[in-house]
Amino acid sequence: RSTHNEMEKNRRAHLRLCLEKLKGLVPLGPESSRHTTLSLLTKAKLHIKKLE
């Protein structure tokens, strides 16, 4: 059980790190620190579409 908890903790930490990296790559506007994961991913998707 503790192994599972540790793996889950590591998974969440990795996900958080990846989202922070994404936040640095996507133009978010003036309220960049107030975005939810969903809004960050939505803006990333729109940004990628613009680049295509």
Rank of each mutant, 00 (worst) to 15 (best):
L15Y: 01
K21D: 00
L41R: 01
L22A: 02
P30H: 13
K45L: 05
S39T: 13
C18H: 02
T3I: 06
S2M: 13
T36C: 13
R12P: 10
R34G: 09
A44R: 01
H35K: 15
P27W: 11
P27A: 12
S32K: 14
A44C: 09
K50V: 02
H4V: 12
K21C: 04
E52D: 07
K23N: 00
E8K: 09
R1M: 15
R1S: 02
H47G: 14
S2T: 15
L38R: 09
E6C: 07
L17Q: 12
I48V: 11
L51D: 05
A44F: 11
V26N: 09
N5G: 13
L38V: 14
L41T: 00
H14S: 11
S2G: 11
V26L: 12
V26A: 04
S2R: 02
A44H: 00
R1W: 00
L51K: 05
K50L: 11
I48W: 08
T36E: 06
G29H: 15
R11G: 10
G29F: 13
K43F: 06
L40D: 00
G24E: 05
K45Y: 03
E6V: 05
C18L: 13
P27R: 15
T36F: 14
K45R: 12
A13W: 05
H14T: 10
L38P: 11
R1N: 15
R34C: 08
L41F: 08
K50E: 03
L28A: 08
L15C: 01
R12H: 12
S32Y: 06
K21G: 01
H35I: 07
T37A: 13
L41M: 02
N5Y: 07
G29R: 14
E20R: 04
E6Y: 08
L38N: 13
N5S: 12
S32H: 09
L28E: 02
M7A: 07
L19T: 04
L17A: 10
L40P: 02
S2D: 10
L19A: 03
L28C: 13
N5F: 07
K50G: 03
L38D: 11
H4M: 12
K43P: 02
M7Y: 03
N10D: 10
L17Y: 07
T3L: 10
K49T: 01
K43M: 06
T3P: 08
P30E: 09
R11T: 08
K9L: 05
E20Q: 09
L40F: 14
L19Q: 00
K45W: 07
A13K: 05
K21H: 03
R12N: 08
L46A: 15
E52G: 15
L22I: 07
M7S: 12
T3M: 05
L28G: 10
E20Y: 01
E20L: 05
S33P: 13
R34T: 05
N5C: 12
K49F: 04
T42S: 12
S39R: 12
G29I: 12
R11V: 07
T42N: 15
C18M: 09
L22P: 01
E6M: 05
G29Q: 08
T36S: 10
P27C: 14
N10M: 03
N5A: 14
E6Q: 12
A13M: 09
P30V: 15
T42R: 13
P30C: 13
L15Q: 01
S33E: 06
S39H: 05
T3R: 04
L17V: 10
T3D: 02
H4T: 14
L25S: 01
S2L: 06
L25M: 12
T36M: 11
H35F: 08
